[in-house]
Write a protein that binds this DNA or RNA. Structure first.
Lengths: 231, 231
DNA sequence: ATTACTATCTCACGAGTAC
DNA sequence: TGTACTCGTGAGATAGTAA
């Protein structure tokens, strides 16, 4: 889309950095070459091409040469900048999983009903989950990868606790939608016996009833994540 | 500075735009090639190189290939983005002039003492100027160019007026510093007899006295301008 | 010291094609 | 359909050098 040649971007950026937008800045091709990690000859060619394309103006005052960026040059850089910015920001704010429903009761079902957890669910998620988890077997490797990548996203942390006899590990909750309809939370347990290909979900409702599906049915889970903003 | 090859930037940006940051996104090399206005072969090579450099991960699930950008890939793009951003923002927020002081009284001195102007100076600049302007002859062409480029910057506008006999043109004022010490305003007159190589300044003080200089002395004038921010 | 020409080289790209 | 090899071409780099 940009008419500006890719190889000229760094050169123009360097001129901006040197303050050449509004003032004519004295510059030598050899120093410019060093700045862009290219040869003096390359810098010279860049300046010639940038000039003939109307992105910069040059002024010879005796032996010295000064350079200033034109409005066109500024506009072009802004265009590229905006394109990059929107690319970096446009990525969707969810992580998606596809898999099939397995076994009625996950290992989590029992633990998730313990008071040490339900009290926290009530205050942090806003509800006490239906006693029973939805277990989904992920079929493709990409979704197993996606599960691992959840770690980089902020989660609602439900802390572990002890009942005097033993301790129970933390639970990370990721608010999610099942089949784009039912609100739920994907949970990652500190201590799990599942392999990586199974995800477990809790919800206020009985999810299987709500979506009218049972073991073997295919489901889609979408976890919303905050896209990181550019600093 | 970035290790990422220049030619890969657009490819990586396209992957970002397709949402490949957190999810594995299915993509064909031919569609990617079209998006980046290159051939299928080029896109294929880009993906291979990006992968071996650790900027993306690829996953083959049967016939389909999915791509996800790694943390390293994200970091690298952010780095480039930040570099561009700071380049565009770093340009100095002033326009500088160098020249020598000429003739004691500029043509402006008389007009600038007229009540139609001084009333406006008082309200818009905050003071009534010393009766006498500082005239500076610019020696290099770059400064004459810089003078012309002042037009793109916002100025304090002092309107013209009529005294019944004749009309007097507007005056554009650009707050400035003389030799980095004395506060003044560079003035551009609607009607001037000067050629482009002379700039005129007004100030609350007698500038020549303040900086202890006289005709023939070299001075530096700095006009502050608002750098345009990126949208 | 500069800038920028000419010659040379390297490697990114696209064409053709195997799988 | 796909991906990715080899190979030829040329844009863009550097080296040498003139002005």
């Amino acid at each position: 889309m940009p008419e500006l040649k890719l190889q000229h971007i760094l050169t123009l950026a360097e001129l901006f950095a040197k303050g050449a937008r509004y003032n004519f800045i004295p510059i030598t091709t050899s120093s410019l070459g060093k700045s862009i990690h290219k040869s003096q000859q390359a810098a010279s060619k860049h300046l010639l091409e940038l000039e003939s394309d109307g992105y910069i103006e040059r002024l010879r005052t005796g032996p010295k040469v000064s350079v200033r960026i034109t409005t066109k040059g500024h506009a072009e850089m802004s265009k590229i900048f905006s394109a990059l910015k929107s690319s970096l920001e446009t990525f969707p704010s969810y992580v998606e999983f596809k898999g099939v429903i397995i076994s009625g009761m996950g290992e989590g079902a029992y633990y998730m009903s313990m008071k040490g957890y339900t009290k926290q669910f009530k205050s942090k998620l806003g509800y006490i989950p239906f006693p029973g988890t939805l277990n989904v077997k992920l079929k493709d490797r990409e979704f197993i990868e996606a599960k691992r990548s959840l770690d980089v996203h902020p989660a609602i942390m439900v802390n572990g606790f002890s009942d005097g006899k033993r301790t129970y590990g933390w639970v990370k909750c990721y608010p999610a939608k099942v089949n784009n309809i039912v609100d739920a939370a994907l949970i990652l347990l500190e201590r799990t016996h599942h392999d990586d290909s199974i995800i477990e979900l809790i919800s206020k409702e009985n999810i299987k009833k709500s979506i009218k599906l049972s073991t073997g049915s295919q489901v889609t889970i979408r976890v919303n994540v905050k896209p990181k903003t550019i600093q």
